[in-house]
Nucleic acid binder design. Structure first.
Length: 212
DNA sequence: CGTCGGATAATCT
DNA sequence: GATTATCCGACGA
């Protein structure tokens, strides 16, 4: 799936990325998968036919998008973690511009730093923000060229991805997972600056309430 | 450049 | 009530 192109067409315009980093999740045999404990309302799309988008909401503020794989009844998916913007960079940058509150006592809004191109879709939630992928795209048909959210080969047809002969593919542990952390099911284009930084799972201490 | 804490709510136990 | 397939800004080197 590396090297394939994900496109989202909205009234605001089209943004497309060439995928540079993905992670595999293997349903019932994979403790890191959302489908590990069976079918629920959230993960239902993963149990359906392949080629559809599984979009989920996490950490109270972020969306991530997966491509459902393997036949109906199985629950496998590939998480799209990063890409390189190849169309609609302006729109992507506007969607990604973070809004900081005006400094205290100031009427002028804080200056917005210009985001480097490599930061636009570096990470699964950033990718979704740049492409404006949200809940309404859960279940979208990625293989239908008429779908607003679609996936295609880098050659404009159904061609395979990989690195297009331009380099190597690396593999390593998945980001942010606790169970199944030893499985090397994260794949990325070697030496690509759009690939997200690896962070091991960091369980946070439960929030303690002040005793007083 | 790196590490660290906070935000914030759906989902599941 | 705990956990989470994350990101951002602050701060220090």
């Amino acid at each position: 799936m590396l090297g394939c192109v994900l496109e989202h067409e909205t009234p605001e315009g089209l943004v497309a990325v060439e995928l540079t980093e993905v992670e595999a999740y293997a349903g019932d045999i994979d403790p890191a998968s959302h489908a590990y404990r069976g079918k629920t309302a959230r993960n239902a799309v993963m149990f359906g036919p392949p080629g559809f988008a599984y979009v989920y909401f996490t950490y109270g503020m972020h969306f991530c998008v997966n491509v459902v794989c393997l036949p109906e009844g199985t629950a496998n998916a590939v998480l799209l973690r990063a890409g390189r913007v190849i169309a609609g960079e302006d729109l992507a940058r506007r969607r990604r511009a973070s809004r900081r509150p005006a400094p205290e006592g100031s009427v002028v809004p804080a200056a917005r730093p210009v985001l480097p191109a490599r930061e636009l879709t570096r990470g699964p939630a950033r990718l979704c923000q740049a492409l404006a992928i949200g809940r309404v795209r859960n279940g979208a048909d990625l293989c239908d060229p008429a779908s607003p959210l679609r996936l295609r080969g880098a050659d404009g047809r159904g061609g395979t991805g990989g690195t297009g002969g331009k380099g190597a593919v690396s593999a390593g542990p998945r980001v942010g997972v606790s169970a199944g952390a030893e499985t090397n099911w994260r794949f990325w284009r070697s030496d690509d600056e759009t690939v997200s930084a690896y962070r091991p799972s960091q369980p946070r201490a439960p929030r303690v309430r002040s005793a007083s």
